[in-house]
Nucleic acid binder design. Structure first.
Length: 264
DNA sequence: ATCCAGGAATTTT
DNA sequence: AAAATTCATGGA
């Protein structure tokens, strides 16, 4: 299957810390999400993939979004221009909800490389032929710990017990504020992780996750390098970028991690 | 070896 | 209410 995709960068999107089970293969990538395994590659404005449907690819990579309007709005803020211009085509994905929940429980005080290790291991340990285990299938604390999840293992186990398919469907119908609150009922999910799930799976672009990278670049850019509370950073972002705060966050995050001048 | 990583929960001031 | 401490582990 091959489709035309203007204003999209597969590389920037995959490499921006929202998606973890993928690896380069040939001139493209091999991706896994829940029970799907598929390959995808991009040449110019063409996206070629096999192993999944066009509908799924469009949803997963955010290809149905009005990208030109999103970027036009964000470009009104000149402080975002370097990141937007350098990483044009970076999109917010709309990932599988359950796998996203576990991904960002794993993210607590960790790093992207290790989250990838955790997720691949959980799929190997519990899933059938590399599918990610469904809710209810990760019911062994010691085996969860074998995947280097450490103190996060008990959170994953709790989510596995609390969540089922009905729970997931209900969450997908909630607005941002309600979904955020509901997610925080799960052990191991507080503001930041809930915002990541709202942003990368539920399409709530108002969500603004504040991690150490965002904290650094926000304080440096907008707060005269002064230590600022996460809630104040989040309030500032939602005041400044409104319903697109999460999109602004993703450009800032990706730019901070890949730019020498913004390294710690 | 020492320090850090897409923080949350708990305990202590 | 706010600040400090604890929690595990791979990688640099």
């Amino acid at each position: 299957m091959r489709i035309t995709v203007p204003n999209f960068s597969l590389k920037h999107t995959l490499d921006s810390g929202q998606f973890f089970r993928y690896r380069p293969k040939g001139d493209g990538y091999e991706c896994r999400e829940r029970d799907l395994a598929f390959t995808v590659r991009q040449k110019g404005d063409y996206l070629a993939f096999s192993g999944t449907s066009e509908e799924h690819a469009r949803q997963l990579f955010g290809l149905n979004q009005d990208y030109e309007k999103i970027i036009a709005d964000l470009k009104k803020d000149k402080t975002l221009l370097p990141a937007i211009n350098k990483y044009h085509g970076l999109r917010i994905m709309q990932r599988d909800l359950w796998e996203t929940i576990i991904s960002f429980q794993c993210s607590i005080m960790s790093n992207v490389k290790k989250i990838r290790l955790n997720m691949n291991c959980l799929a190997t340990e519990f899933g059938k032929n590399n599918a990610f285990p469904a809710p209810g299938q990760m019911n062994d604390l010691e085996r969860i710990k074998k995947c280097a999840t450490g103190f996060r293992a008990k959170y994953i186990l709790a989510a596995n017990e609390l969540v089922d398919e009905k729970w997931l469907l209900r969450l997908q119908k909630m607005n941002y504020e309600h979904a955020r609150e509901k997610l925080m009922e799960i052990p191991g999910i507080a503001e930041k992780v809930a915002d990541c799930i709202c942003l990368f799976s539920l399409g709530h672009f108002a969500a603004f996750p504040v991690d150490v990278w965002i904290e650094r670049i926000m304080e440096k850019t907008y707060f005269d390098s002064k230590k600022t509370k996460h809630n104040d950073l989040r309030a500032f972002a939602q005041e400044r970028w409104g319903e697109l705060a999460g999109y602004a966050q993703q450009f800032l995050y990706h730019h901070a991690r890949h730019n020498e001048s913004t390294q710690p």
